[in-house]
């Protein structure tokens, strides 16, 4: 019974959202407001049951984890935003969070986005037994990396043989990469559409099995 209601509701709201392809209309507006409201309510419930309760309330209630009261109070300071006279207190958890996030992210980014990439770029171009196409691929990758890096130089004018030519090649390399990414991602989106059409034709209308 509930499955049937769920399928009909799912089909109705799928079509309601798709009706936006024609134009913004009251049915779409209904679906939009419902999904925003329900997702927000659901998010609050999930945050309470998956984060607040098991990671703060339960450990503190069971005793022995009093240290958790400090982050709990820091989080509680966010609520001071509702009281203009003491709303400045909410800046403390924000500052702590931003500072900590940046501190943690900096070495991680340095390792993953700089050193690892650099390591991959300075591999030997040729080794015994390598086929010519692999060598050519490595050379193109290396020159492409250099050109893309030149494009992202902001403090030099993109003129002359090095910065001018290099940045022009760089933007070509970047756009070629984006083209490949575009095709790859579109394929993923098409599979999502197929999933939705399958739901409508199979689960709802039973036209296909």
């Amino acid at each position: 019974m509930y499955d049937v209601i769920g399928i009909w509701a799912g089909a109705f709201f799928t079509l309601a959202i798709y009706s936006f392809l024609y134009k913004e209309n009251p049915i779409y507006r209904l679906a939009e407001h419902l999904v925003v409201g329900i997702s927000l309510g659901y998010g609050i419930a999930v945050t309470y049951s998956n984060v607040l309760k098991p990671r703060l309330i339960d450990p503190v209630n069971s005793g022995g984890h009093w240290i958790l009261v400090i982050p709990g109070l820091m989080g509680f300071l966010y609520i001071t935003r509702f009281f203009p006279r003491i709303s400045w207190l909410s800046r403390y958890p924000i500052a702590l969070l931003m500072g900590t996030s940046m501190g943690v992210a900096f070495p991680l980014t340095m390792k993953a986005a700089v050193l690892r990439q650099l390591e991959s770029a300075i591999i030997p171009l040729y080794r015994e037994g390598m086929s010519w196409d692999v060598v050519l691929g490595s050379v193109i990758m290396l020159l492409g990396t250099l050109a893309a890096l030149i494009y992202f130089f902001f403090s030099k004018p993109h003129k002359g043989p090095f910065f001018g030519f290099g940045s022009r090649i760089g933007i070509w390399v970047i756009m070629l990469g984006f083209g490949a990414t575009f095709g790859f991602t579109v394929m993923g989106r098409i599979s999502l559409l197929i999933g939705r059409v399958q739901f409508l034709l199979s689960d709802w209308l039973h036209l296909i099995k």
């Binding site: 959202i17 936006f20 134009k23 913004e24 779409y28 507006r29 679906a31 939009e32 999904v35 925003v36 409201g37 329900i38 997702s39 927000l40 659901y42 998010g43």
Partner: peptide
């Protein structure tokens, strides 16, 4: 809202 696609639905509605 925190939900990714609900957020998109909301912003799209605002745009239109």
């Amino acid at each position: 809202t925190t939900s990714q696609f609900a957020f998109v639905a909301g912003v799209n509605g605002i745009m239109m």
